[in-house]
């Protein structure tokens, strides 16, 4: 046979009748659920009122501006981004401590992880929130910040941290979320560090690198590449978990959605819309992380 002939085409995946049956029954279930809501509950669908809380037309300026739900989405986004950064820092430090030879550091990090992992997030957030909002923030003078001061009353600050009047509210939510997610990131980082071969530590030490440089130049870059997939999953979990901080009145998407649902009495519309907003947010991050992963994989080759 001719060596240069092209390889045979792989067989194509096709949907079988059984697949169509499956899709069909799922569709039937959805239609039935819709029917129940419409006919049995006699529910009046009215999307216009809820959509009005997404964007509204401002008569004074003559422009469309974001209303409660969109504001909430941006607060959630800010919360998620800052909490991700903070949780990463906590996770890397604590994750390294978990693998340290120093017993004190190991005890501290172990306590942190076990304490947070074995308490329901809501309970942790209630405890931690009342501690920081009643003790730490007043001590830091955060409650006395002048919302019109030059430092906070500018577009950059507003873009990064939202409304200055809600700063301590925002920071409380951010800290709760970061502390909580940091524990899970810690465990992922620990697993990553431990997955780097012993020989890498030895080689790095053998050329006389300091402790910090061993970690920064040799161990962490390899560990982070390995843990990128679970880390991405954890960060998407963080975005979803950010809904919990609505319970301590942080004015993010879920909190504002509760208010919109109460005002409009359009419960289904509100939560379907909010669900879609969360989906778009999380899925965008999933796509972004997948891209990072592919990039990291490429540079390894």
């Amino acid at each position: 046979m001719d060596r240069n002939s092209p390889p045979p085409a792989p067989p194509r995946k096709r949907l079988t009748p059984l697949d169509y049956l499956l899709f069909g029954s799922v569709a039937a279930l959805v239609v039935y659920a819709g029917y129940r809501v419409n006919d049995v509950l006699v529910y009046n669908w009215d999307w216009s009122r809820v959509l009005g809380f997404l964007v509204r037309f401002d008569e004074d300026t003559g422009r469309w501006i974001g209303n409660l739900l969109l504001t909430g989405l941006f607060t959630t986004l800010r919360l998620a981004v800052w909490a991700t950064l903070l949780a990463t820092v906590i996770g890397i430090v604590m994750g390294y401590w978990r693998t340290c030879e120093n017993l004190t550091l190991r005890i501290i990090s172990r306590c942190y992880v076990e304490l947070i992992r074995n308490i329901p997030p809501v309970v942790f957030i209630f405890i931690f929130f009342f501690f920081i909002s009643s003790q730490i923030f007043p001590a830091m003078g955060l409650d006395d910040i002048d919302p019109d001061g030059a430092l906070v009353a500018n577009p950059v600050f507003h873009f990064l941290f939202g409304d200055p009047r809600l700063l301590s509210n925002f920071l409380a939510g951010l800290l709760c979320l970061a502390m909580f997610e940091g524990a899970y990131v810690t465990e992922i980082v620990r697993a990553g560090i431990q997955s780097v071969q012993k020989g890498q530590w030895e080689a790095a030490r053998a050329i006389g690198l300091s402790r910090t440089n061993v970690l920064r130049d040799v161990i962490l870059p390899q560990a982070l590449r390995k843990i990128l997939p679970p880390l991405a999953g954890q960060f998407i979990t963080l975005i979803k978990d950010s809904a919990i901080v609505s319970l301590i009145s942080i004015q993010e998407l879920t909190f504002l959605a509760t208010e919109v649902a109460a005002t409009t009495t359009k419960v289904f519309e509100t939560w379907i819309l909010v669900g879609a907003m969360y989906f778009i947010l999380c899925y965008s991050f999933a796509v972004l992380f997948a891209w990072f992963e592919r990039r990291a994989a490429r540079s390894r080759r």
Binding site: Q197, G199, Q200, E202, A203, A204, R205, A206, I207, G208, D217, V218, P221, Q222, R225, S299, R300
Partner: peptide
């Protein structure tokens, strides 16, 4: 360690 070079059985180059 800076005065003492070491070569390992499994090379241990930094793969990244």
């Amino acid at each position: 360690r800076r005065e003492v070079g070491m070569v390992f059985q499994s090379f241990n180059l930094f793969p990244h």
